[in-house]
Amino acid sequence: MIKEQAIFEAGMEIMRRAAIDIPEDYRSGIKAMAEVEANELSRFVLLSMIENWEAAEEDRRAMCADTGLPRYFVKIGNEAGIEGGPVALERALRQATADATHEIPLRPNRVHPLTRQDNNNNVGLNAPEIEYSFEPDADWVEVTTVHKGGLFGSDYRMLFPGDGIGGIKRFFLDVMYEFGRRGLACQPAIVGIGLGGSKDISMTLGKQAACLRVVGDRNPDPEIAALEEEFKEVGNNIGMGPMGFVGSSMVVDCHIEAGYTHTGGMPMSVHTFCLSSRRATARIMADGAVEYCSDPKWFTPYMRREGIEWTGTATDTAATG
């Protein structure tokens, strides 16, 4: 049985790692972009951010003062047991959020939408969000936290089948221009695109594609993978770079997730995970051991299944190391 205390401690640790340590995949992606960025202002921004991540690691202080909206993605092994059940798990993660906010410190960003009441701990009504997925033949629980900015860089649109790939590309460009100017999206970003599903799931898939897949990862569907490559190219060729300066550094990678949708529609969402792409994962074993990493491997073959029965055997695809 996994103990509530183990979940709480892992929650504290991933909150700290996410806030301070930029994931290596993102860092190497930005370093590669800085090497080919020809515009001096854009290059200055990229080099400043690299220096900032180093300062954060040396000082053990948060890399960005905007905590965004700290939240969790929990993957539960089908055979996992949690002492106290899901209620204990959620209590542990809410407690970790409050304590980490005070101890790191993080900016208490969460307020009531109407009264603007701030509990000064990033906990409140429906906050932090906790999303769930499951994994067959596993007895662990994996918890990922993401701290993503919450104001700019995302958009949703109901497209229709007749709009075609051109329509998808056009809306992608709209979001790049809309939120790239002045760097509102804090690009270069990991751009996540949700295609299909119901309206809300289109948003969810795109958000998860941006936040839970690493730079360099490709969708296993070759047609979608080709679109990911194409959109990355397209985004980096609109003549815009970081802060909306002239440049070629806009999209460090593009991830697309699809879901079966209404026969008449093609809902689409676009999300941008920013220059402070903060994510960290802990796998909590049944015996209490914990492994940490920055690759959540959220979209497992089980997650992307299409049929009724799960017949796959390669189950240990979720995060390690």
């Binding site: 400043s48 900032n52 954060a56 760097g183 804090c186």
Partner: peptide
């Protein structure tokens, strides 16, 4: 003046 990035939170914190 604009901040850079955004943002260089750790550098400014220093």
């Amino acid at each position: 003046l604009t901040t850079v990035g955004y943002g260089t939170g750790a550098l400014l914190g220093r």
